[in-house]
């Protein structure tokens, strides 16, 4: 017994690595995390705290425009959110970005599918073409859509011929133009993650499906689509989140009736200089997006993501 115990102890001793490297090993991960954590703290957490405190400020009595003092006025939230001037654009933001996300998915998925499976030696060229618009400024590209959708432009002309648009009607400026702009601007963010997912789908799995009596569409529905879900989730988030906070498209392609929450925030900040309202809107927008994303990821994410 005693001997066995002693041998056991020795073995135990040998198994325990020398203490020094282990200690160093324990801290290495944190050390590596440090730059990232610092970055997050300085550029995310601290501004967030400032923003939150701003949202609770009150105008200085008798002060100038843009002069506020720190209070804890939670009434700012109630006041802002019950005002039609703010909650309608907020609501509109999610409608517009939601529609744009669906459209981008409907366009981006087939595009990504084609590039991944059918493009052969054109694949790289097509991928470059998906990214190519980024070489031109976001603003310029959006302004270009004014031309494309103008009353005397090709698109409206064609729609007038087939009678979808009346002789005096047009597209720009309108909700449709804003949504078109949003869809266009965020399409690469939808297409690329889906492409990355599809490209990793083993074609042999699709063959296995066909071998097991799946007709082409069934094979897609049961194999390709579920396996591309990570890309679809990433693509929809990368489209929906920035689109919901966007103000450029509504500014350039819409009228005042198409204002989104981003336009209000921008206006409060630069024109009215009502910083607390601006901060309240920013916080509410963030909370809404966070909630929607969490619900979405939980619903889709529980559905057999690989």
């Amino acid at each position: 017994m005693a001997i066995a115990q002693a041998i056991g102890d020795t073995i135990e001793d040998q198994r325990t690595p020398p203490p020094d490297p282990k200690k160093r090993g324990r801290f290495t991960p944190y050390l590596l995390l440090l730059p990232g954590m610092l970055w997050l703290a300085i550029f995310f957490a601290v501004p967030l705290i400032f923003l939150f405190s701003t949202s609770l400020q009150t105008p200085v009595a008798g002060g100038e425009v843009g002069e506020f003092e720190q209070t804890f006025n939670f009434g700012n939230y109630v006041e802002t959110l019950t005002d039609e001037y703010y909650y309608v654009p907020l609501f509109r933001s999610f409608i517009y970005s939601g529609i744009a996300t669906v459209l981008a998915l409907l366009i981006g998925y087939p595009l990504a599918y084609m590039i991944a499976f059918k493009s052969g030696r054109w694949r790289n060229l097509l991928l470059v073409m998906v990214i190519a618009p980024f070489f031109v400024s976001f603003l310029l590209r959006t302004i270009a859509w004014r031309q494309i959708l103008a009353d005397e432009g090709v698109v409206v002309g064609a729609l007038r011929v087939i009678g979808l648009v009346g002789d005096t009607g047009g597209i720009y400026p309108s909700a449709l133009a804003v949504i078109t702009g949003l869809t266009y601007n965020f399409l690469p963010f939808m297409t690329l993650p889906i492409y990355a997912s599809l490209e990793r789908v083993d074609p042999r799995l699709i063959e296995a499906g066909r071998d097991l009596y799946a007709k082409p569409f069934t094979g897609f529905r049961k194999i390709t689509w579920p396996l591309s879900m990570p890309g679809v989730v990433a693509g929809t988030l990368l489209t929906f989140i920035p689109a919901a906070g966007d103000y450029v498209n509504a500014e350039l392609l819409g009228t005042g009736k198409n204002s989104m929450i981003g336009n209000r925030i921008q206006y409060e900040f630069f024109n009215v200089r009502d910083y607390p309202t601006m901060a309240v809107l920013s916080f509410v927008l963030m909370a809404c997006i966070l909630t929607i994303v969490l619900v979405y990821v939980r619903r889709v994410g529980s559905d057999d993501l690989v």
Binding site: D202, E207, A208, D211, L212, A214, K215, P226, D304, V306
Partner: peptide, 20 residues
């Protein structure tokens, strides 16, 4: 078409559906 044939295959790399 492969899905019409009464033929099934055990693939070289198995090709099991990873998400099922």
């Amino acid at each position: 078409k492969p899905y019409r044939r009464p033929v099934n295959t055990v693939f070289q790399n198995y090709a099991l559906f990873p998400h099922m």
